[in-house]
């Protein structure tokens, strides 16, 4: 396949993200990375589970957490996962405009999620005086949830730069793998969040 075919494909293949060797390598390499990320988050979850009773006289999970905000955040992130599925659907149908719109919606929902999380942390630190240094529970909580929040921020900046960089390029076999891999990352963030809202917030409320 010549360079010209990659940048200006005459006909979009069924799976544009895996039509070139570079695309195939990106796909495999990214899943390898996700396997590693799973272990990384598992170590943070394990730490949290081991330390979440060590409150050092400070507020406990049950006293601290409210489920309303967490429910809203869950819905925001879950919906953004679906909108990035829409974006990839339009990518496969070679519709740049619609793909960019849905990626934009995904980014907007992601920022709304991040805003809620910052509000939540602000409330804990200034309202409840629960900080990273309050207790082992505090350290484990902020590390786990903050690390996920950092992933959300990174994903948002990533997708945003893809949108800006490729807005005038059109979909081709060079950038299709980039969009595809970014959407995988975004879904993975949602996978991690499912376990955070279950293990940290819901199990914290149950006691």
């Amino acid at each position: 396949m010549s360079n010209e075919d990659v940048l200006n494909p005459k006909r979009m293949p069924h799976e544009p993200e895996k039509a070139t060797l570079e695309g195939k390598n990106k796909f495999l390499g990214f899943w390898f990375f996700l396997g590693g990320e799973t272990v990384l988050f598992a170590s943070l979850f394990g730490t949290y589970l081991a330390l979440n009773d060590s409150t050092a006289g400070g507020p406990s999970a049950d006293e601290l957490f409210g489920l309303e905000l967490v429910f809203i955040m869950t819905m925001l992130l879950l919906t953004s996962s679906l909108t990035s599925v829409y974006a990839i659907y339009h990518m496969k149908n070679n519709d740049l405009g619609k793909m960019l719109v849905w990626l934009g919606v995904t980014v907007a929902l992601g920022f709304a999620f991040l805003g809620c999380e910052i509000y939540e942390f602000y409330h804990y630190i200034h309202g409840e005086h629960f900080t990273f240094r309050s207790s082992a529970f505090g350290s484990a909580f902020y590390t786990l949830v903050g690390f996920h929040g950092g992933h959300v921020l990174f994903g948002l900046l990533w997708i945003l730069s893809l949108i800006i960089r490729n807005a005038k390029r059109g979909i081709n076999l060079y950038n299709a793998p980039k969009f595809y891999v970014a959407s995988l990352y975004w879904h993975f963030i949602d996978v991690v969040w499912v376990f955070i809202f279950t293990v940290v917030y819901l199990m914290g409320k149950v006691g």
């Binding site: 899943w31 396997g35 988050f41 598992a42 170590s43 394990g46 589970l49 081991a50």
Partner: peptide, 23 residues
């Protein structure tokens, strides 16, 4: 290959969590 990667990751993840919670 993705299945191998993610299930490999999940099995190490399960062992990690088991270690941290039983310790």
């Amino acid at each position: 290959m993705p299945a191998l990667m993610i299930y490999g990751g999940i099995s190490v993840a399960v062992m990690t969590i088991l270690t941290f919670t039983t310790i």
